[in-house]
């Protein structure tokens, strides 16, 4: 296994040993979340910003601090650039980080990004000094536009949030990877370990997932699976896979067979 410190994920000049970024949504309890985060080996984890609940017990922030994980606030649930910008500013004030996972969704049924609002919000936040990591469609043109306005990474979806449908358009993900000058993080749609490995084999720099772990029957076990899948996919990408062939190619020599 390669030492992750020799092959760090670098976003906006900051290095991470793990290429697995996790979300915290969907975990049945903070204790389960803690075990899953620990098993995942993640160093960067998303949280959402919501109105304070006076009856809430414990905080996800305590869990992240205990696990030594850096917090990445998101703008989940925002439908307009204005809402997303305000949420990002509140997150910066509350959590003391200018990093934001930018989400601007178009509707509740698909949770797909609204590209017009997304680019608008990204431009505003970059101008305000944020390090912007946008959740985007698997659209190479939109990814390029987001990079052009100054985003620190692009995070195309594999399939809709929470769907577990995997990577529906691997070709587009490859096109995004080929063209990108910033890290590409496969975000959303991962269902199981092979999906995460595929994302890395396609050349993504990291994978962001939540539901696949937090709603698995055994979250900590799936977190461990994802950790290995991301590492394995990365190594396979670096190693360079063999070309696909139409017919067989014997791996044992034909010469010297008995009876010849």
């Amino acid at each position: 296994m390669a030492n992750p410190r020799e092959d760090p994920l670098v976003i906006a000049g900051e290095a991470f040993g793990s290429r697995l970024i996790t979300g915290t949504g969907g975990a049945p309890s903070l204790a389960v979340l803690r075990d899953a985060l620990t098993a995942s080996g993640t160093e960067l984890t998303t949280v959402a910003m919501r109105r304070v609940d006076p009856s809430a017990h414990g905080s996800v922030l305590d869990v992240l601090r205990d696990c030594g994980v850096r917090v990445l606030p998101n703008t989940a649930g925002c439908f307009t650039a204005g809402e997303a910008v305000l949420t990002a500013k509140l997150a910066r004030e509350a959590l003391g980080t200018s990093w934001v996972k930018l989400e601007v969704i178009a509707d509740e049924r698909t949770l797909l990004p609204d590209p017009i609002e997304l680019v608008d919000a990204a431009e505003q936040l970059v101008a305000d000094g944020f390090t912007v990591l946008p959740y985007t469609n698997d659209d190479p043109v939109l990814a390029r536009r987001l990079e052009q306005v100054g985003c620190a990474a692009v995070m195309p979806l594999g399939s809709p949030i929470g769907s577990g449908l995997g990577i529906r358009n691997p070709h587009n993900i490859e096109l995004i990877v080929e063209a990108a000058g910033v890290p590409v993080i496969l975000d959303a749609g991962i269902g199981t370990a092979s999906d995460a490995a595929l994302a890395m084999e396609l050349g993504c720099d990291a994978v962001l997932l939540a539901t696949a772990v937090t709603r698995a029957q055994e979250p900590a076990l799936m977190a461990r699976a994802m950790r290995h899948a991301v590492a394995a996919g990365r190594l396979a990408r670096l190693a360079g896979r063999i070309p696909r062939r139409r017919y067989a190619q014997a791996s044992s020599p034909f010469e010297g067979r008995t009876g010849t």
């Binding site: 998303t46 919501r50 304070v52 996800v60 989940a76 509140l90």
Partner: peptide
């Protein structure tokens, strides 16, 4: 006035 904090999400 809106008063927000971090919760599980994303």
């Amino acid at each position: 006035l809106e008063v927000l904090t971090a919760v599980q999400g994303g």
